[in-house]
Design a protein around this nucleic acid. Sequence first.
DNA 1: CAGTATCCAAGGCGATACTG
DNA 2: CAGTATCGCCTTGGATACTG
Lengths: 143, 143
Amino acid sequence: MHVKGSLDGAGAVQSTPSAALQARDELTCQVRDILNRVGDKWSLSVVNELGHGSRRFNELKRAVPGISQRMLTVTLRVLERDGLVSRSVYPEVPPRVEYTLTPLGSTLLERVWGLIDWVLEHHDDIDEARGRHDAGRAPASGP
Amino acid sequence: MHVKGSLDGAGAVQSTPSAALQARDELTCQVRDILNRVGDKWSLSVVNELGHGSRRFNELKRAVPGISQRMLTVTLRVLERDGLVSRSVYPEVPPRVEYTLTPLGSTLLERVWGLIDWVLEHHDDIDEARGRHDAGRAPASGP
DNA sequence: CAGTATCCAAGGCGATACTG
DNA sequence: CAGTATCGCCTTGGATACTG
């Protein structure tokens, strides 16, 4: 079910214009909120890795090259807070902690794949556009 | 066409493992790059507004409450560089500049709507999860 | 009208060191 | 193993002033 115009309140309730505007702003914030969650430097890599099954802390650290211990912790805490990832502690020694994608997290990952498909289909176009722009707007047919 | 495992190189070429890892990292970067583009503070609002037709600079500024002149300029320049938005200058006085979503930008907006739908469907779940987390992990049935 | 230039504050993130 | 704590750089973005 698509709700194409919803971001600016088209098709929304017919109360005062300011109420419609406020609803738009709220929705915009929610959407941007989620986009930032999934668009920040590490969440996507972590969620994607967890998309293949449960992982321990250091497994994730190895699977996501370049991530710092601090950022892995922070990223996992945020994902856990939002209910996208669950954390299970097994009180053994040495301690074992497993992170797992929740059903909610899986549904989000599904949607993100839609964007991944788009990137695969169009990142050539973007590269080309950037090249043209950076080269001083030379048209495609130019010298 | 979905390519679910592609972010970590599953189903990719069977060269050296390091080559597969490198390809994974590259794809991850590209995807995160696009997600950041669309997930930053203002791009989504601007793109969505342009989804309804061409707009002039100050029309956009009014249509996106709270955006500063600087950030509108920066956002539009980045979107233009990526070929998602086109800029047309009409050398009149007073000067007139129109911004329009390109076909490429429209296809991206389509995919973003997929995420918007997800947000509409699940932001209650996220709010609930946050509430539980912030309240000290009280279970759903507990007092 | 449609920008550009400059300054400044807040937050993101990496590096490093320490702990149960 | 699985973190927490602290420091400090760098980027992001708002406010303000100036321009063609």
